[in-house]
């Protein structure tokens, strides 16, 4: 499969649309594009580390992929956060855009390589890995919003947030790497986390 061709195909209309939209929409689109770029970059880094370490595909997914992907996903957000000092709302929507861009491109690659004929596979893919990337980006966004209240803690806080997202991603990859009931638990994990997340945020806002 030629991921680069797919990348060009998806990104071209977005790049053409980029100058024609303004302010919030432009920023969202920009981060969506950066999410897609980051996904392609992470595919390269994962392949590189897999070749260097000599690990199998499954072991790479459990040990290396979460670290590479989460670091690369955090980088555009961290850059935006440190250089432009955005408002919490802008930071949050940017985090969502990075997560969605990443998940979209990854889903496209998987569907192209494994086929899109089976609706249950497509749904599982969309609701598990797709949601998982968005959840991790949301967590990173929320974490950075917290850090923005105490700028001197930026470096320390960013390391902590990275650790959180990497581990969550690794738990998901570990669960889906094993056959049987565990895999289904893994598939359900992101959606369950998303539901808990929204319920929790609602509870905090109410209280």
């Amino acid at each position: 499969m030629y991921a680069e061709n797919l990348f060009l195909c998806i990104i071209m209309p977005l790049i053409v649309a980029f100058p024609s939209v303004k302010s919030e929409s432009r920023r969202f689109l920009g981060f969506l594009i950066s999410g897609i770029c980051v996904c392609l970059l992470s595919a390269y880094t994962n392949s590189f580390f897999m070749a260097v370490s000599g690990l199998s595909y499954d072991d790479t997914a459990v040990f290396i992929t979460p670290v590479c992907e989460e670091i690369l996903k955090l980088l555009p957000l961290l850059f935006y956060f440190l250089v432009f000092e955005p408002s919490p709302d802008s930071l949050f929507s940017s985090a969502v855009a990075v997560g969605v861009g990443f998940a979209t491109f990854e889903n496209c690659c998987y569907l192209l390589s494994s086929g899109a004929g089976n609706i249950s596979f497509v749904l599982i893919r969309g609701l598990s890995a797709g949601v998982m990337h968005t959840i991790c980006a949301l967590a990173a966004g929320y974490g950075l919003i917290y850090i923005s209240k105490v700028k001197q803690m930026a470096a320390i806080g960013a390391l902590g947030i990275l650790a959180l997202t990497v581990t969550y991603h690794a738990v998901f990859n570990l669960l889906v790497s094993v056959e049987g009931i565990t895999r289904y638990v893994g598939f359900a994990l992101p959606l369950a986390t998303a539901l808990c997340w929204f319920a929790f945020i609602k509870k905090i806002k109410v209280s």
């Binding site: 040990f63 670290v67 320390i156 806080g157 990275l162 650790a163 990497v166 690794a170 094993v178």
Partner: peptide, 25 residues
């Protein structure tokens, strides 16, 4: 539980080490 062996360096270490940064902050 799943792999029947403890992991060597893994995401668990990342989380455990990373958790210190929160308490330092």
């Amino acid at each position: 539980l799943l792999k029947k062996a403890p992991p060597y360096v893994s995401a668990a270490d990342v989380a455990w080490i990373g958790s210190f940064y929160f308490i330092i902050a």
